[in-house]
Design a protein around this nucleic acid. Structure first.
Lengths: 200, 200
DNA sequence: CCATTTCTGACACACGGTGCCATAACCTGA
DNA sequence: TCAGGTTATGGCACCGTGTGTCAGAAATGG
């Protein structure tokens, strides 16, 4: 894993020649134009003006370049879940948290849609996304456990329901580009989240 | 993908020196003993008395060796779904189909449990499983589309609900080995499958 | 015995990913 | 201006996965 930390501390030392965000942009353009599998890391590195070895210091796995924003989204989800009013319906809290976590600036809509299409349709990316999915499931499951500490089924189900709803919404969004991701998230989660279990 | 067809037709030609089932058994033993990543294809091939190249004629990807039974399970799911009474509750049909698809002989319980643990806990296998998951989602979605042809949300949701329920059940089974997979499947699917939508 | 069919193993190769090390580029203090 | 510390970079060697190719082994039927 190694994962050299590039551009983390900005005191002293040689300045980074590029950035993770820049690399992600270059790579996504190449993926959309020529396909993920047809684009080698060497191609990305060359297009970005760096070496193959350096690419792996920014992203330890080729597919990671498509998930540059995922850590931020996860943090937003976790914060929205833990900051929620404990007396509010758990379903409402989750829906709001997911929508907030996945919100993006209006100008990045096309960009986000392209990325979603890549992740949902390229097998390698679909596979790699399981890492992120596991984190989302865990976050949702921990929130659910906090609501019903004595129920060992509830957290598992909520974790999978959140993931299923999020994926279903993206899938709908990809096939209905004119619709809004937010609306799809609300609809799908409403259908998939189980009803609030009886109070403990 | 290539995927040379070994042991498909048994008339004429040199007989296969081993079988996919045999290879799967050898590989799973090695994976459980030493770990998936720590076991190279060379190791499996040597243990099975074949060459590395020949291994990839039985399984085009190393991880595939853990999903040798998946095609059979998928067929059982599809058959159970398409053979169902059109007037019966869609939820009941799905629950019965999933349980029937994943049923295994009593003697293979330990074997199946080990395999489930590998698939759920080894990142590479978890990632590779998305291929199988996509097939299950598709099968469930097509069934749902047959029930409500004018609803373009229902199939997506049902596909993801079936997958989420199946995964949640396996996750519960892994953490509660004494329980039965069938019971977990019934519980999880019951919580995750959305209610039957109004008749068209 | 020959032709056909199918499986097998050996070789070469591309690509992803990693460890190692020398070096470039910045900053600070003398 | 120079020395020393810090961080990013690039080149190299290396391993494992996966694939194309091809010669040859082992069965069948005529």
């Amino acid at each position: 894993m190694e994962q050299g930390r590039v551009a983390t501390g900005d005191r002293g030392g040689r300045p980074a020649i590029t950035s993770a965000h820049e690399l992600a942009a270059v790579a996504q353009r190449l993926f959309v134009a020529h396909g993920f599998d047809e684009t080698s890391v060497e191609d990305i590195a060359t297009a970005a003006g760096i070496s193959r070895r350096t690419f792996f210091r920014y992203f330890s796995v080729k597919a990671d370049v498509c998930f540059a924003d995922s850590p931020t989204e996860l943090v937003r989800l976790q914060q929205a879940l833990s900051a929620a009013d404990p007396h509010e319906s758990y379903r409402l809290v989750i829906v709001r948290a997911v929508v907030a976590a996945l919100r993006f600036p209006p100008g990045e809509r096309e960009w986000a849609w392209q990325r979603a299409q890549l992740v949902l349709e390229v097998p390698v990316l679909q596979a790699h996304a399981t890492r992120i999915y596991a984190q989302w499931r865990k976050a949702a499951a921990e929130f659910a456990r906090g609501r019903r500490p004595d129920d060992d089924v509830f957290p598992v189900v909520v974790g999978h329901a959140v993931l299923a709803g999020t994926l279903a919404a993206h899938e709908y969004w990809i096939t209905h580009p004119a619709s809004g991701l937010d609306d799809a998230l609300v609809r799908m989660l409403d259908l998939l989240l189980p009803p609030e279990p009886p109070a403990p």
